[in-house]
């Protein structure tokens, strides 16, 4: 592993200034479960590692039924699922937070880091997209901008962050009445594995809980980035909850999947799994929306 400089700023301004000082040769460190492995393996290079765990805004986890959730980019997964109000408001976020890596990894790995690592297989990203997440980004000179989660990743390991920019937090809107969400993935092992395909869905039902008001569906490991399968989710809006509607959404999600053949799976298997997992996550999301 090549030597690098290390700094641990205490403010967003200092963190951003440090990142800006080395441009694309600076990397932010939160849990380090991806970055350190990549540096050791020579898959990423960094002259400067900026440890952002000491920045208060990146450690916040604040939820209210009125404003939703603001989740600091350096909050580890275990603190997400151990937070009772977050766990009860966003079971669809707890799904990926509690299955990424292992117990030990979940003690370090962060949802923000999962987004910034921008792997097509990042388990939390489809869930964040399905939940309508927005990324709060800080830049130099006190500038900030918001980017919808579905627009954050731009390629394998690449995202919208410019040199000198920092992901501060992720915002999730408050859960609507009669809503539910779910993330599931397919892995060969029972844990410590990389999704062959993953699907996150969220649904909002009407007051009768028999009809879809809206739905959002996002996919992992089936394209160079996580995929927001907008047509698939939109196809459910206004329809009665039925196997036929779910099947139609699953078909549309499969059409949006553009997987490759690699050592983890084939195009055929991954596309098939998108269909299966879309059906299964919708069914679970509906159950959750109905309070079943």
């Amino acid at each position: 592993m090549e030597a690098f400089e290390y700094t641990a700023p205490k403010t967003i301004a200092d963190a951003v200034a440090a990142l800006a000082s080395k441009g694309d040769q600076a990397r932010a460190l939160a849990g380090g479960t991806d970055l350190l492995v990549q540096l050791r393996g020579g898959r990423r290079r960094a002259q400067l590692v900026v440890d952002v765990k000491g920045v208060p805004e990146l450690n916040q986890i604040s939820y209210s039924a009125r404003t939703g959730l603001t989740l600091g980019a350096a909050v580890p997964c275990c603190l997400v699922y151990q937070n009772k109000s977050v766990a009860s408001a966003y079971p669809g976020l707890i799904d990926p937070a509690s299955l990424i890596g292992s117990i030990q990894i979940q003690g370090r790995a962060t949802i923000g880091g999962n987004l910034c690592n921008s792997a097509p297989s990042g388990d939390s990203i489809p869930a964040i997209i399905a939940l309508g997440g927005v990324c709060n980004i800080a830049g130099s000179g006190g500038k900030t901008r918001q980017v919808p989660a579905e627009q954050f990743c731009t390629g394998p390991g690449r995202n919208v962050l410019q040199p000198g920019e920092l992901l501060v937090s992720i915002h999730l809107p408050p859960p609507a009445a009669n809503s539910g969400a779910n993330y599931q993935r397919f892995i060969p092992r029972n844990e410590m594995d990389i999704a062959v395909a993953g699907v996150g869905t969220s649904v909002v039902l009407d007051s009768s809980k028999r009809n879809f008001v809206s739905a959002r569906i996002a996919l992992a490991s089936v394209a160079p980035t996580p995929v927001f399968a907008k047509k698939a989710g939109d196809s459910l809006a206004g329809k009665p909850v039925s196997d036929a509607a779910i099947e139609e959404a699953a078909k549309l999600a499969m059409a949006d999947a553009k997987p490759i053949d690699d050592m983890r799976g084939t195009i055929k298997q991954r596309t098939h799994l998108v269909g299966v997992l879309t059906r299964r996550t919708l069914q679970t999301a509906i159950k959750r929306a109905r309070g079943e």
Partner: peptide, 26 residues
């Protein structure tokens, strides 16, 4: 699970993320 996968003689499963041995959960 376990298989050293090849593409034209090159092994593509060069980490324990890709060369999958059972874990305690298995």
């Amino acid at each position: 699970l376990e298989e050293l996968k090849h593409e034209d003689g090159r092994i593509s499963t060069l980490t324990f993320g890709e060369y999958k041995m059972p874990t305690i959960a298995d």
